[in-house]
Structures are given as C-alpha cells and as structure tokens.
C-alpha cells in the first residue's frame, strides 16, 4: 500500500528531496512584536521533526513563515531548495490544522474534505479527474476512513476527524507535511495509528514537522527535534538534543520536574531514579538520573501534581 505513494510522478518536485531550511529567521509583526528572532534549523528528507516550545514561543510563527503566511523581517525560509512562494505553487507543503480551527458544522462530507487536497492538481474549474478520485480513495483507505466517506465531518469522533485531515494531506501528495498539535483531544489508539502512518511516510521520504507540547511521545516517533523559545535554542537528532538540560532551557519555569527513586519505587538498593518532566498529559520519563532533589516524593503525589499542572495549563 505504501509504495503507491513512492511511485508518484510529481514533476520537478520529485527530483528534489524534501527539505526545510530556515536561516536566521526574524519575524516582527506590524504592532512591533518580534515573535521569532534569528531562528535557524535545517531538516532533510525522511524525517519526523518535533517543534517544541511553550505557548507564545513562536511555534505558530515558524509554521506561518514556512507556509508563507508571514513575510520574514530578516532571514529566509527555503523548502526543497525553493523559495516558499515557489514551493507552495508546486504543492510541496501540506498542512494539517488544529481541530479547534475547523468549523465542524460546515456542510462538507469526509470525501469532500479529502478532495480539497487535490485542488492544487486540478484545472481551473476544479473538476476532479479519475486520477484525483483514485488518490482520494487511496488516501481514505490509508487512514482507514473509507467507511465514513459519506459522513458530514461534524459527525466523526475526535480521532476520526484528525485522520480525515491527514488523508487530505496524503491526497495532496505534499512532500513536506506540517501538523499542528496533532495529538490533542484524540484517543491513544488513534495516536498510535497516526504515528505509524507518519513512520510509513518517513520511510517514503516525506518530511514532517509536528508542533506539539506532548513531550512524552516525542522520543517515541520523532528523529529530529527543534526546541523553540522566541528563537531556536537547540536543534538536531532527538537522542542528542532532547535532553533534560535543553528542555529546562526551553521551558524555563513552565515545566514541572519530579524525581522518583529508591524505596519509593522498589525494594532493592538500585540507585537509579525516575525523573518526570511534564507540562501535559504525557510526562516524559528519564531513567538513571542521579538524585538532586527531595527523596521521598511518591509516585501518587507526582501524578496528582501533574494533573493539577495540566489543569492550570488549560
């Protein structure tokens, strides 16, 4: 099923491997607010990259700059080696919106939404060709939503809604896919399904940029990380970049840090500890860190605090 996407002929863009190059990006809005300053990072094909930062850290601004919604005050963004405008006109970028941004009462069916991904490939009147219909069928099949194609989009569950918009990105055949907070408000099964799909796409050479504050799942499926706080604090492979130290820099005082260990966890004298960092429903857990803080924190307490913290965040 997967290789269908691989064999697609996409003219010039096929020759160019997916890439995002952000160089010294600075964005100052008309009201004088500088949302991002001197941000730089580079991503290549076959990669899933997490864009991590607190609210207001400039995640959305970076997204907007990549999609050409804002013009950089300084610096530049290149996609597949092309300027943004050119890349957009070649249908290189697909975008999966946050659920809150969608009017779920809109009178469109699931298949209509997925067909919207094909508009860039269609003629002036947007009359779907046989190929367009085929791509829509494939995309729906891939996210396992074929059975729901005649449903109005508001009648779906949270996870199904997400999958529809993912299918739209697939139908669009963009080599760069931007996902805005894809894991908020969906169940674990869907999350796993989406992650598996993203991995397949990575194998096929796609480049995915995922904005998320769901730290726990980042090392799970992202091979690259960009940490953002009004500028790029660190960027690179997850293993070397997604460290406790960098995260503390990224989140400043926003994150909670819990260390658990010793007899609170087990009976033996294993000195390794569990360090829980979280601002969200999925705490990130480090094993084998040396103790720096209080010893007797109980797991239950930590959980409670996490929950409280999460409430405060909402």
């Amino acid at each position: 099923m997967m290789n269908r996407l691989d064999t697609v002929k996409r003219g010039e863009a096929v020759a160019r491997p997916a890439s995002i190059a952000v160089n010294d990006l600075t964005v100052t809005y008309p009201n004088g607010f500088t949302a991002v300053r001197d941000a730089s990072f580079e991503l290549g094909p076959g990669s899933i990259c997490a864009l991590v930062g607190v609210n207001g850290s400039g995640k959305s601004t970076v997204f907007k700059a990549i999609m050409g919604f804002v013009t950089p005050t300084a610096g530049q963004v290149r996609l597949c080696g092309l300027p943004v405008e050119k890349a957009i006109s070649q249908n290189i970028v697909a975008y999966v919106p946050q659920s809150e941004d969608v009017d779920w009462n809109f009178p469109v069916l699931v298949e209509d939404v997925v067909m919207m991904g094909r508009y860039g490939h269609m003629n002036f009147l947007r009359i779907p060709s046989k190929k367009d219909r085929l791509k829509v069928d494939e995309a729906l099949e891939r996210v396992n939503m074929s059975a729901y194609r005649k449903r109005q989009i508001g009648e779906l569950s949270g996870g199904q809604k997400k999958r529809v918009f993912l299918a739209r990105a697939l139908a669009q055949e963009g080599r760069i896919i931007l996902l805005d907070e894809p894991f908020t408000g969906i169940d674990v099964t869907t999350e796993t399904a989406i992650i598996n799909l993203l991995r397949d796409l990575r194998e096929a050479g796609h480049l995915m940029l995922v904005s998320t504050h769901n730290l726990g799942s980042v090392p799970d499926f992202c091979d690259q990380v960009v940490l953002l706080n009004r500028t790029v604090l660190a960027a690179g492979p997850t293993a070397s970049t997604f460290t406790q130290e960098n995260l503390e820099r990224t989140f400043g005082g926003v994150l909670r840090n819990f260390e658990l260990g010793g007899h609170a966890l087990h009976e033996d004298d294993d000195a390794r500890r569990i360090n829980v960092i979280t601002d969200d429903e999925r705490p990130l857990v480090f094993y084998g860190v040396k103790s720096r803080k209080k010893k007797n924190a109980k797991k239950q307490d930590a959980k409670k605090k996490t929950a409280k913290n999460q409430d405060a965040d909402q």
Binding site: R37, T231, G236
Partner: peptide, 8 residues
C-alpha cells in the same frame, strides 16, 4: 550582532 541560533 548576536548569533544566538545554533543550527544542527
């Protein structure tokens, strides 16, 4: 003036 950004 400042070179804050460190690209990977």
């Amino acid at each position: 003036s400042a070179s804050v950004a460190e690209a990977a």
